[in-house]
Design a protein around this nucleic acid. Structure first.
Lengths: 178, 178
DNA sequence: TGGAGCATGTAATGAGTTACATGATTGG
DNA sequence: CCAATCATGTAACTCATTACATGCTCCA
């Protein structure tokens, strides 16, 4: 009864109550959105698989062909098994890095532009995370609730520092060295 | 003539000379390995597409069905276009984070184990990056050659700090708080 | 000279994204 | 009552990984 991470995430979300695929996709975005993206299509595909394995139970078809999915006992077991299994390797893919690796053939002005746009995007994310953190703390969030958010915070901070120290004024993108 | 990032990477690597798919896969691992993984199967798939579009030229079939691929003029143009295009969004997927989000249902001892295994893996990577950096500096590597490596360094440093401050002694995984 | 290992490529499968179709609700 | 919007799901496609097959080379 091995499930993949995305299917497992759905099982995890179903602990909060039965749901349609649409709802699950929403829960996923709300609760995991920033560090584990799941699209609706994935949800439906995985739910089909989970139902085939008896890990979720599909209810009657309601309005707008809505089908509610409920976690079964074996679904809960499978979820716990996945939870205790060794996590897979991280996937980190930064399109900007790939371009930097080949930047010898890129016009310097355009390069500076790319870099500054990307930096702005990261700065924005960091700002958002800070707001989320403040909001969580204000409403009594525990460390537990914040671990994943804090990961995001540290990640964005590190990335920004990298931008500024490696690519900023003094870095090779602005033309002083390299 | 829009190409995806992986195909573009192959075009970029082909600037260093014609190559078989196998060789390209090796170059990709050697030169981009740590921040842009490319499998052999991907290489062949993309090469087929690139050949169809006339962006690479396929030579005669040699020993072991080896086919050499050469960058064409339009291939070079397509490469430059990709290079100057806006990079896509980062993909960062950390299976451990997903587990942490659901860790309420995980046995604390097992959780500590998972965390410590993952931490060790990151520490190892950091050490490797540091060696690579030292080696690069020793052989006269410029900042340009080091940007991507430095990204990896900062990333791993940030991740380790996160481990230690959020999950280490005092963090909720070791049971003091939360 | 034959087997270990490298070089080369293919097939099958799984995961993720984009685009599409349609049925209910609801506020104006 | 109808137009906008939300809820729901499907189909088609692209991208990525795993498993497989086979042909050279080379050295013990």
């Amino acid at each position: 009864m091995a499930v993949n991470a995305t299917a497992a995430a759905l099982l995890g979300l179903l602990r909060d109550g039965a749901a349609s695929g649409y709802e699950l996709a929403q829960r996923a975005t709300a609760e995991l959105g920033d560090f584990w993206t799941v699209t609706r299509s994935q949800v439906y595909r995985e739910l089909t698989g989970l139902a085939d394995q008896g890990l979720v139970e599909v209810g009657q078809t309601g309005a707008r062909s809505r089908r509610e999915h409920r976690l079964t006992a074996s679904g809960r077991v499978a979820f716990r098994e996945w939870l205790a299994a060794e996590p897979g390797a991280d996937v980190v893919r930064i399109p900007l890095l790939l371009r930097l690796a080949f930047a010898d053939e890129l016009d310097p002005a355009r390069l500076r532009e790319l870099v500054s746009t990307q930096r702005a995007a990261h700065a924005e994310r960091l700002a958002r995370y800070r707001e989320l953190e403040a909001a969580a703390l204000a409403t009594g969030g525990t460390d537990r609730d914040l671990v994943t958010l804090r990961f995001g915070l540290r990640y964005e901070e590190a990335v920004l520092r990298w931008f500024d120290e490696e690519l900023g004024p003094g870095g090779w993108v602005s033309g002083r060295r390299g």
